[in-house]
Design a protein around this nucleic acid. Structure first.
Length: 214
DNA sequence: ACATTAATTGTGT
DNA sequence: ACACAATTAATGT
């Protein structure tokens, strides 16, 4: 456990702080597909991702979902950070994309450590910055890219996150993540298959080559 | 092994 | 976007 912390955060956090994280952090193991936090629910701490990946998404008034970004190992959720400083309700939903190990830092420590540990405030600031940039990327993607490009990005992300060229996902589920319709996704996927970029089978997609530039 | 059903995917309008 | 066809997987008999 402590070795794991050192391996993942050893470069960015000072030893004394790691010691303390080890002491007060609550270790959790979460199975893929499990909901971690719901929109509107109370933020009770800042989760640090040790291994695995978490999918963060937003929902509109009609219940349409939209994938924002993934949290990977060594990262912290900025939503929960802001939750500790200001409002305590989550504006996003988070679901474990893979089996995930994380450690939750209790809410009262966050602010304290900011004063006590330089490396902690750096870490928090960097996390915030990284998440912000990911959000900008997501916005660019939605605003300026067509659905076919968004789909390619989605497949690439998915492959990277899961470390596999095989994506187990129905067209319907993809459409949900991209806030599109199943038919559109099916057609675009078919087109990609015809272009030789992917291979389609029921319930999963095999990626051949998505790195073509148009 | 076969029939039935449900879910997923494909296609035309 | 909608409707329907085709295909595949799951389940019961």
């Amino acid at each position: 456990m402590k070795d794991e912390l050192n391996k993942i955060f050893g470069d960015s956090l000072e030893p004394r702080l790691i010691e303390e994280i080890h002491k007060v952090g609550i270790y959790k193991r979460i199975a893929a597909g499990t909901k971690i936090i719901e929109i509107g629910s109370l933020v009770r701490g800042v989760p640090l991702v040790l291994t695995g990946a978490i999918k963060v998404m937003r929902e509109d008034n009609d219940g349409n979902e939209l994938l924002l970004y993934y949290l990977e190992d060594g990262q912290a959720c900025s939503m929960s950070i802001s939750g500790c400083f200001k409002t305590s309700k989550s504006a996003v939903r988070a679901i474990a994309e893979r089996d995930t190990e994380l450690i939750i830092i209790p809410i009262d420590k966050i602010v304290n450590w900011n004063i006590t540990y330089k490396s902690w405030s750096d870490f928090i600031f960097n996390s915030y910055d990284a998440r912000f940039n990911e959000l900008l990327q997501a916005i660019d993607n939605i605003a300026f890219n067509n659905m076919d490009q968004r789909l390619v990005e989605y497949l690439k992300d998915k492959a990277r996150i899961n470390n596999s060229l095989f994506i187990e996902q129905t067209h319907k589920a993809i459409a949900y993540d991209l806030n599109s319709s199943r038919v559109v996704i099916s057609r675009l996927l078919k087109k990609l298959e015809n272009e030789g970029a992917i291979e389609l089978q029921r319930n999963f997609i095999k990626i051949i080559n998505l790195d073509f530039e148009k």
